[in-house]
Design a protein around this nucleic acid. Structure first.
Lengths: 165, 165
DNA sequence: AATAAGATTCAGTATTGCCTGAACATACTG
DNA sequence: CAGTATGTTCAGGCAATACTGAATCTTATT
C-alpha cells in the first residue's frame, strides 16, 4: 500500500505557483509551469499520476504539457524496469535547453529582419539604416551569447569528470 | 487637403504582420506588434491617427498600446512645434531597450530561484544542487550578456562622436 | 469663454486558448 | 484471451484578454 501522499509544504507550493506564473508570461501554460516547478523541486522522477495529484490537474493536462515540455527539451521521460509507468524529470543539463529556447526565439526575430531588406529595398535610407543597425546588434549579441553559453558548458563539463558520476 | 493615404505596399504589410505575430508570442498584443512593425519601417514619426489607419485599429487601441510600448522603453513620443498632435517613433537606440527587456524577464526568474533556498533548505541535497547549478548558470550568463550589451553600446557610441562623452 | 482637436478611459463584446471529463488506444498480467 | 493499468486524444465549457465605439478629459485656438 503506497503511503498516503503528504501534501506539499505550503511554502513549496507557493514557490511552484510563482514559477508557474512566470512560465505563463513566457508563453507556456500555467500547468506546464507548475509541472516544471514541481519537477525542479523533486528529488526523484515522478509519474504522471503523481504529477497530476501534486499539481492538481487532470491527467490529460499532464500528458499534453509534459509532451510540450519534452518537445522543448526541458523535460525527459524515463522508465523504470519492472514498472509500466513513465517517469518524468527535468533535463539533465537544465540551463542549456532553457537558454537554447531563448536563443531560438530571438533568432526568429533576426530572421524576420533578414527577410525585410528585399521587400524594403526602396525604403528611405533612414529605414534601411535602422534595419541594418538592429540586425547587426542582434547578430552581435546572438554570437556573444552563444559563446558565453559554450563557455559555460565547457566550464561545467571539466570539473565533473574527476570523480565518476 | 492631405493627400490620399497610399495603402501600404503589400509586401510591407506582410512583413509588419509577421512582426506582429512574433510580438504576440513575446507577450505583446497583436496591435502592439503591428505598431512596432509599422514604426520600424517608417521614415518619419507618425501621429496616432495615422497609425490607426495604417494599422487599421481603433484610436483607443493605438493609445493604450503606444503607452505600453513606451513604458517598456521601445517607443518614444515626440512633439512638433506648431502641431498639437503627438508623434511616435521607435526608441533612438532600439537594440538596447529590446535587450534590456529580455534581460529583465530573465532576471525575474533568477530572483525566483534565489528565493527558493530559504524555503527549500530541507530538501534533498540533489534538489539543492539542482537549484544552485541553475542559479549559477543564470548568474553567469546574465553577467556575460550584460557585458556583451555594454560592449555593443561602447562600440556604437564611439564612431559617432569624435571625442569622449 | 466657446469651440474643437486630440488623446485617454471605460464598459461591453468577441476571440482566443486552457483545461477537463470522457472516450479511445495500447500494452501488460494472469 | 479477458481484464486492467497507463497514457493519449478530443469536444465542449469556461475564463482571460484584446479590441472597439462611445463618453470623457485636456488643452489649444478663435
Amino acid at each position: 500500500m503506497p503511503r498516503r501522499q503528504v501534501p506539499l509544504q505550503a511554502s513549496t507550493a507557493d514557490l511552484i505557483e510563482r514559477i508557474a506564473l512566470f512560465f505563463e508570461t513566457e508563453g507556456f501554460s500555467r500547468i506546464g509551469g507548475r509541472i516544471f516547478g514541481r519537477l525542479l523541486l523533486a528529488d526523484a522522477p515522478m509519474s504522471l499520476d503523481r504529477l497530476a495529484t501534486d499539481v492538481s490537474a487532470s491527467k490529460a493536462s499532464i500528458s499534453t504539457e509534459t509532451r510540450s515540455l519534452e518537445r522543448r527539451g526541458l523535460l525527459e521521460r524515463i522508465g523504470k524496469p519492472g514498472d509500466r509507468r513513465v517517469y518524468y524529470q527535468l533535463a539533465a543539463e537544465l540551463p542549456m535547453p532553457t537558454m537554447a529556447l531563448r536563443l531560438d526565439r530571438w533568432r526568429r526575430f533576426s530572421r524576420l529582419l533578414e527577410e525585410a531588406p528585399a521587400d524594403v529595398a526602396r525604403h528611405s535610407p533612414l529605414v534601411r539604416r535602422r534595419l541594418d543597425d538592429t540586425l547587426a546588434a542582434h547578430r552581435f549579441l546572438l554570437a556573444e551569447f552563444g559563446d558565453a553559453l559554450e563557455r559555460w558548458r565547457r566550464r561545467n563539463e571539466t570539473p565533473t569528470p574527476a570523480p565518476r558520476s
